[in-house]
Each structure stands twice: as C-alpha cells, then as structure tokens.
C-alpha cells in the first residue's frame, strides 16, 4: 500500500475519533437552560423554611442519570453541615395508573444522605413555584428567605467533582458571601411536566 493511502486511512480514523471525542465533550459540557427563580422563598403549604436556618433545595428527575452526580455533590455539601442548613430534594412525580415513579435508585440515594429531606412533587406544584425546569437545579435561600444561589452543582453532565456551584453553596452555608451566585445546570429536562401543569392549571 502506498504511503499516501496509509496516511489517508490513519487520518480518517483519527478524524473520526476526533469527531467522537468532540461530541462527547460537547454533550458533557452543554448545560440545560435553567428556569426563572424567585428571589424570595416562595410560599407553599407543602414546603416551609425553618426559621433562622438557610434552606437548600434541589429539584431532581427520579430517573435522570446525570442527577446521580448532583446528589453526590449534595451529599458532599451537606455532610457535617446538617445542623446549619435545611436540605431538601424534591423529586418530580410523573406517576400514572400504569407507571409508578416511587422509590427509584435516585430516591434511595437521596434518602440515604443524612440530614436531607426528600419530598415528592405531586402534580409539579413545587417545581412550578420555584421555576425549576431541569434535574439538578438547586436553590439556596439564606435564613431570611432571600435567594443567594441558583444553578447546578456539578461541573459537567453526570460528572462528580469540585465545581464553582458546590463551592458557592459551601461558602454560603459557612456564612460567607459568594461571587458566583449561579452555575450551569446539567440534567434532564423537567419541562413536559410543567407544560402539562400549565395546561392543567
């Protein structure tokens, strides 16, 4: 085989790999579009703040694989800080008569995090109040109910590890201000439920 042919074959192979790797990184690094968050803790009969304690709320899709990393990050944030923050994971509930969404792996993972309250968002009421549109979207309200952070807490899609969202929340819990009150969210979309809700409402 001639040299040119050999170079061509190898180049095509490397190019295909390059395309694959680029797509991998592109998918991994492309965040979801977050919803519009309320600046104050939204009043809700099913979810109330504890007075004098900041609140950390994460919305999660019960089967979103990317949210596994978000829950892990949440676990790292809350660990040893349970007494300083009220942590809540709100799972969307898409239950129908034919299909149950209770107690998925992610639900079990969230329940296992010490100091974390897990609630099910029946009919999408909470996500609607908070304006959450994608899984892993997290909110931090200070003890006065003011929104201090809104965004994701993973560095990329489904990728655990330190990131600025994680760092911002830890700073806020410790009583410091943060220069990064937001961070991209990487997770599955919750919007179908919203659409359904909006249509219903």
């Amino acid at each position: 085989m001639k040299l040119f042919s050999r170079i061509l074959i190898c180049s095509v192979w490397l190019l295909l790999i390059g395309v694959g790797v680029f797509a991998m990184q592109k998918y991994s690094m492309t965040p979801a579009l977050p919803g519009i968050a309320p600046q104050q803790w939204p009043a809700s009969p099913s979810l109330k703040m504890i007075e004098g304690k900041p609140a950390l709320v994460m919305f999660a899709h019960p089967k979103c694989p990317c949210t596994r990393a978000s829950l892990s990050e949440l676990s790292r944030i809350v660990s040893n800080r349970q007494d300083r923050v009220m942590a809540i994971v709100v799972f969307m509930n898409y239950a129908t008569e034919q299909n149950s969404w209770d107690h998925t792996n992610l639900w079990d993972q969230a329940v296992s995090i010490p100091g974390v309250q897990v609630v099910s968002d029946e009919q999408g009421e909470l996500s609607h109040r908070f304006g959450a549109v994608c899984s892993g979207e997290t909110y931090f309200f200070d003890s006065k109910g003011n929104l201090a952070f809104h965004g994701g807490i993973t560095s990329s899609r489904g990728h655990e590890g330190d990131n600025s969202g994680h760092d911002a929340i830890v700073s806020l819990i410790q009583g410091y201000a943060t220069e990064t009150p937001t961070h991209p969210v990487f997770g599955c979309s919750l919007k179908c439920l919203h659409s359904h809700q909006e249509e219903t409402l």
Partner: peptide, 24 residues
C-alpha cells in the same frame, strides 16, 4: 436513557459507546 419529563430516549452515552467505541 435521557429524560424529558416523563418521556425518554436512548442516552447519548449509549450511542457514544457504540460509535466512538466502535471506531476505536
């Protein structure tokens, strides 16, 4: 699977494993 509310589709990672893994 990747989810869009209650709807799902094959996750991109599955396609990635098939195609990029296949190329490699």
């Amino acid at each position: 699977l990747t989810w869009d509310g209650a709807s799902s589709a094959i996750h991109f990672h599955v396609w990635l494993a098939i195609f990029l893994g296949g190329i490699l």
